[in-house]
């Protein structure tokens, strides 16, 4: 971000795209795919190097998927693993000077949140059919209003939480360095904030993934699971 709040746009096929967001997304995708390729290039029974890292994430997410989404959850495991790796990378690349997080753009976070919610409702309808629609009218028919608000709030909260945290983190990095004439004075606060931003980046990647899993779990789980 060169100027806070202003985004360069490109028009393509009559549609407007945020250039930086798209480019940074491709960079994040490239990093994720590169690291994954490094990890699987030479898969061994005794893991070394990047294989450890990717395996650790996959094993941890498998555990979460099994506990939160039941026996059908493994179907969505590639989606969940990709979501987490993409969000983690996206959040972190914004901390590198001159780069920006794709997740500092509401288009990215809302896009992902809508995708998750769409999958939730599609899977809910597919696996539960009429029961899925009926559960919006529980415990009484008028509750449909509250349930609708909840369902609409899900993607909005999911999107704005991530977007707000990442954008605020990046803005503050820029602001801290411009607070005084002498940027060296702000070294310590900047470094401290950078460290905290790394933590926040990881935490919000986890939160987004976990909430998505919880929503997906509701749609996937049998009533007796």
């Amino acid at each position: 971000m060169h100027e806070i709040g202003v985004r360069e746009t490109t028009r393509f096929l009559g549609l407007t795209f945020n250039t930086e967001t798209i480019l940074m997304t491709w960079l994040a995708m490239a990093i994720v795919i590169f690291v994954s390729c490094l990890a699987v290039r030479n898969l061994k029974a005794v893991p070394t190097g990047w294989q450890n890292f990717v395996e650790m994430i996959v094993v941890w997410l498998h555990g979460q998927i099994d506990s939160m989404m039941g026996k059908r959850g493994r179907l969505l495991a590639p989606f969940i693993v990709s979501l987490f790796l993409f969000l983690l990378t996206s959040n972190l690349i914004g901390l590198i000077p001159t780069l920006a997080s794709p997740t500092n753009d509401l288009n990215t976070t809302l896009g992902l949140a809508l995708l998750v919610v769409t999958i939730v409702h599609c899977l809910g309808l597919y696996y539960k059919g009429g029961h899925y629609i009926a559960h919006f009218f529980q415990p009484f028919a008028p509750f449909v209003v509250i349930n609708m608000i909840e369902e609409i709030a899900k993607p909005i909260t999911l999107a704005f939480r991530l977007f707000g945290n990442i954008l605020a983190g990046e803005i503050l990095i820029i602001v801290l360095l411009r607070l005084t004439e002498n940027p060296f004075l702000m070294t310590l606060p900047s470094v401290a904030w950078l460290g905290f931003s790394i933590f926040i980046s990881c935490v919000h990647a986890v939160i987004f993934t976990m909430l998505s899993m919880a929503y997906l779990g509701n749609a996937l789980k049998d009533s007796n699971e």
């Binding site: 985004r7 746009t9 549609l15 795209f17 945020n18 798209i22 753009d105 288009n107 990215t108 896009g111």
Partner: peptide, 10 residues
């Protein structure tokens, strides 16, 4: 500001 980027990101 929401625009076609949303679709592109999905």
């Amino acid at each position: 500001e929401l625009n076609a980027t949303l679709i592109a990101q999905i």
